[in-house]
Every structure is written in structure tokens, then in C-alpha cells.
Design a protein around this nucleic acid. Sequence first.
DNA 1: GCGGGGTTTGAACAAGTGTTCAAGACCTCG
DNA 2: CGAGGTCTTGAACACTTGTTCAAACCCCGC
Lengths: 206, 206
Amino acid sequence: METNAVNPGEQVGRQARILEAVLDLLSRHGISGVNMRAVAREAGVALGLVNYYYEDKSSLIRAALHRMDQHDLMLVAPDPESPPDEQLRKALRRVAAPELLTTRYLSLRLHLWALAQAHEDFALINAAAFERYLEGLTTLISNAKPELSRDECRERASDIVVVQNGMWLTALLGADKPSIQRCLIRTEQIAFAPAERTSKGLSVGP
Amino acid sequence: METNAVNPGEQVGRQARILEAVLDLLSRHGISGVNMRAVAREAGVALGLVNYYYEDKSSLIRAALHRMDQHDLMLVAPDPESPPDEQLRKALRRVAAPELLTTRYLSLRLHLWALAQAHEDFALINAAAFERYLEGLTTLISNAKPELSRDECRERASDIVVVQNGMWLTALLGADKPSIQRCLIRTEQIAFAPAERTSKGLSVGP
DNA sequence: GCGGGGTTTGAACAAGTGTTCAAGACCTCG
DNA sequence: CGAGGTCTTGAACACTTGTTCAAACCCCGC
């Protein structure tokens, strides 16, 4: 039943290799580059095996989506080790970490968003993941700034997500590193701003 | 040579109808939904005619890209009627106007970005358009705030574009209207912030 | 009328697509 | 060894895809 360690050594499980191949192809060539034969070739596996593990092509995409979502969710996972405000700060910095600003990751995100936009069922999966991410970020803020109401926290989380999405997208398109970093600071300002008026309250001038 | 007014009345030129069909299909179903037959059907035209006006499928996509870019560029076009700061404010507001926050427009943008990510030649077109947009915004800022150096203006333009990209993307995914509006205000704050330190200078606390 | 140009059509072709399936390979337990 | 299960293969199928092309159509000046 469970995945067996067939060959000794470098065998990592064909199913996992297949999913990995999908992610690779999707990030490099977009959805048009993802077809069963290319996936099989990239995974070093026979054509039939792809349909053995994933009954559909759309199952394949769904698997890719779920895997990406789960990865994204870890960005705002609570970490019992650090104090709350440190957790929040770390979470915010993670999205601008060089490890995440890879073309592979960002491109994958972009293509999955595009897919979600085109197909109803993918959209649902994506929307749910988005909501979980937002909820996770809201909780982090709430922990770090207990004086804020839940609604205020969620408002800030929404604002931050907008900027983060912009950072991801712009990193992919223009790759102006410094402006990404400046926007990272902006997310921290939103998160840690003093209580009072949160919507318009970022004081601009004297 | 030039497009003739063949039939009287509602004929708008087959070539234009074909391009329109591409934009429609792309925004609704993504690149997988764009094939010569579907385009012909959507445009109410025979299959062969698509290849008569556009020699390639990629010529079709290129045409869609150019048309979108040209539209985007108009968002930051200078408007001799208004005073400089009004021009800037209008340009910033345009990107959050309900007319632009349509699913059709945003979805189109997303799919074109995804295409640009997947194909080198589309990427070049896109990058050039991005640069022109950035330059246009920089000029608007420079006109509105002549006391800033060109570099400072471009820095602000970069920051604004990040947030704008985030607004577009988030409008498409989550559609949390209020946070979009709050981020619009944020772009205005970036644009009109007083001179001094522009990078970290958005004062957060007392 | 009659050519002659631009335009429009849809059949035809070759290549590529997702999916199925019978056959084989492999491993485990009796 | 051999039965029985899971895994793996690649040929085969039906269908879609981009592109080509000969034929038809339309309109205008002659």
C-alpha cells in the first residue's frame, strides 16, 4: 500500500518525481508545456505511469495547486519558539527572502493563478488557500498586537497581502530588487503601525 | 490596401473582430482556450481567415500583447488640460477605477503576463511596455513634484508600480474592494510624500 | 461583360494531444 | 518455485491542433 523503497539509493518515488516534473514544466513553459508525454519524459518515466498515479490531466494540475498552497501556508505558520512580534516579522520577511524570490517559484505562482482564473474548479481551490493564508496572517498580527480588534487585524492583513502580491509579481516582471525591499518595509509598517486609525492613519507629513 | 468598408453598417473590419475574439477568449479561458478554430468561431469568420491576417498563432498573441500594452500606456499618458499634480492623481486613480477593475481586463493582464513568462519573445515585448509605463509614471511624478530629482521620482514610481500590481492581482483573486481602495490611497501617499528621505521616510510612529 | 486585385471559405494534412489497455516486470509472501 | 499483488511499459485509439491551399467570392475600373 504505502510507497515502497524499491530500489536502494536514489529512488525517490515515481509519483513524487511526476509531480515535481509537473511543477518544473509549469514554471518553465506554462500550461502549454505541460502535457502527459513531456511530464513523463521530464520525470524519466513511461507515459502510462502518469495516468496510473493521476487519473486525469486535471488531477495533475490539482495536485500541483495543492502542493503550492500547502507551501504558501507554511509562510504564515505560527512558530511557538519565537515571541509573537518576532513571528510576524519573520513571516513578513519570508516572502521577500531570496529563496522565495526565485523565478521558479514566482513563475509557478503566476501560472497557477492564471489557471485558477481560467477554470472554475481550480479557482475554488485557490480561493480557499488564499483565505487560509489571509487568516494565518491575521492571526499572526493579532498575536503580535493584542490591542487590535480581530477586524482591524484582518484589515491590515488584507492590505499587506496586496503589497505582497505586488512584490511577487513585480519581482517576476521587473526584478527591481531595491523597490521590493522598500515594499517589504512597507508591509512591516502596516503590520506594526500604532493602533488608532488604521485605514488612512499612516501619517505622511508633519 | 487599407481596410475597406465592404458591407454597409455593422461591419467593423474582420481583422479587428479577430483580434477582439482573441482578447475575449484569452481573458475567459486562458491560453488553452485560444486556438485558431475557437478564434474564428468567436469572430464569426472562417478558419482560414485568421491565418490570412495573422500568419502565425504567435503573431496573434503578439498582436494581443501590443494592444494591451498600448492600452496600459494610456493610463500614464500626460494630459495637457490639467495641472501636473492633478494629472498624477488622476493617473493613480485610473488603475483603481471600476472600469479597469473588470475581470475581463485583469484576467487578460494575468494571462498575458503568464505567456510572457513562458516565452522569451513575449517577455521582451512585455518588459519594454513595463519600462515605458514606469517611465511615464516617473515623468508624471517629476512634473507634479519638480523639487525631486529624477532618480527619486523613478524610485517612487517603482514603489507605486509594485503596489499597483498588487492591487490588480488581488482584485482578481480576492476582490476585497476596501483594501484595494486603501492601497490606492497608499500609492498617492508614496507619490505626494514630502521630499526628504523617500525610502524609509514614511513616518510610522510618533 | 470581363478580367484582376484583394478577400473569404472550408477541406485536407501532418503533427500533437489525453486516455486506454493488454502485456510485462518486479517484489513479497506462502 | 509460483501465485498474487502492485507497479511499469509503450503501442494504439480517437480527437484536437496549426497550417496550407485551391477554389470561390466580391467589388471596381474598363
